[in-house]
Design a protein around this nucleic acid. Structure first.
Lengths: 198, 198
DNA sequence: GTCTATAATGCGATAGAC
DNA sequence: GTCTATCGCATTATAGAC
């Protein structure tokens, strides 16, 4: 296999994980059956079981995929945005970028961790690690803004507010609410003063 | 039946709805089977079907129960608290009062509407009406504070922040986070200045 | 109102042919 | 790697006796 081939090739396994990721987001983990994933990828159930022996295994692969995608997104923001403040704005504005999906299905991270908590699923902690990627990244940005002492608390604050917006946006399907709250968070961020050195 | 009897009597139907309410909260709607509800109430599945013909029917009854309980709670706050500000504080402090359950299972209202959205269940709008009870009540309080023009936006803001706290509290099981955010919301509420008349 | 027995369906998972 | 066929199980839901 040449190097070019690798770029084009998409394995059946990858197609399964991608379809499962999408279906878990739109329908929920438990509500999504093996049959529906197999149908989406247009393979048989038997073939499916060749790649994944259990539902927990594919959940594990989906979370790994989300961890990878999140890391890539955070790195891209690190490149694109010039200042820590601009980088935090990138995060907040996902609510605008993904508005349509969020109104229909909420936040992929929040809804999955919530569901796994109710199922008392062992993968709950792993799913929460996607949150932790955002949390640590935001913490770094707030540290760069000079808020070393409260950086993690500020990161959790921004993370929490985004989650709240996602929950209510999907409950009411109200786009104006997202705009208002994003504006409010951005105003809050702008008014965050660098603490004077002690 | 005398008046005293009514106070003591609890019908099987009520016991079923109460158990279902609790199980839907802790395990999720779809994950909760008729058998588990019947087991909690200690009746047979057959008896269960005598009271509720379908799973949708019991969900409907559970939401009605939550609507009633919410209305009663809001009325109680209306009596207990002296000022609109104090009343809004009552709402925010549910996060403290119900901390243990929220860390384990999130907010009952938010998690149910989120789940029903993924199932594309017709009861989703009805479940969101519990949110609307809080929303309208908070709107009234902000109006009483003199914020007639932005009362609904302020209500949605408080509602959204509470939801965000609930999601992250259950994802991380971190009680200090709840305390910090509740303090922050109370500080925000305290600093909300009554707009000067135009 | 409460029970047992049972139908009908869909699910996760396995075996084995090609 | 892909398929068909099938098992075992849990679930919703019904029928009918007491």
């Amino acid at each position: 296999m040449t190097r070019t081939d690798v770029l084009v090739m998409v394995t059946t396994r990858e197609r399964i994980v991608e379809a499962a990721d999408d279906l878990f987001y739109r329908q929920g983990f438990e509500h999504t059956s093996f049959a529906s994933i197999a149908q989406a990828v247009e393979i048989s159930r038997g073939n499916f079981y060749h790649h994944f022996k259990s539902k927990d295994q594919i959940l594990d692969a989906v979370i790994d995929r989300r961890l990878d995608n999140t890391r890539a997104m955070l790195e891209a923001w690190e490149q694109q945005a010039a200042s820590p403040r601009e980088r935090i704005r990138c995060f907040v504005r996902i609510l605008i970028t993904n508005r349509a999906k969020i109104e229909l299905h909420g936040c992929p991270v929040g809804t999955l961790t919530t569901e796994l908590a109710k199922l008392e699923h062992t993968a709950q902690d792993k799913a929460a690690r996607v949150f932790t990627l955002f949390r640590r990244w935001l913490t770094h940005q707030f540290e760069a803004l000079g808020h070393e002492a409260f950086a993690d608390a500020l990161a959790m604050h921004v993370l929490g507010r985004s989650q709240g917006v996602a929950v209510l946006a999907s409950a009411y399907r109200d786009p104006t609410f997202i705009d208002r709250e994003v504006d409010d968070i951005e105003r809050w961020l702008k008014n965050l003063r660098k603490p004077r050195p002690s």
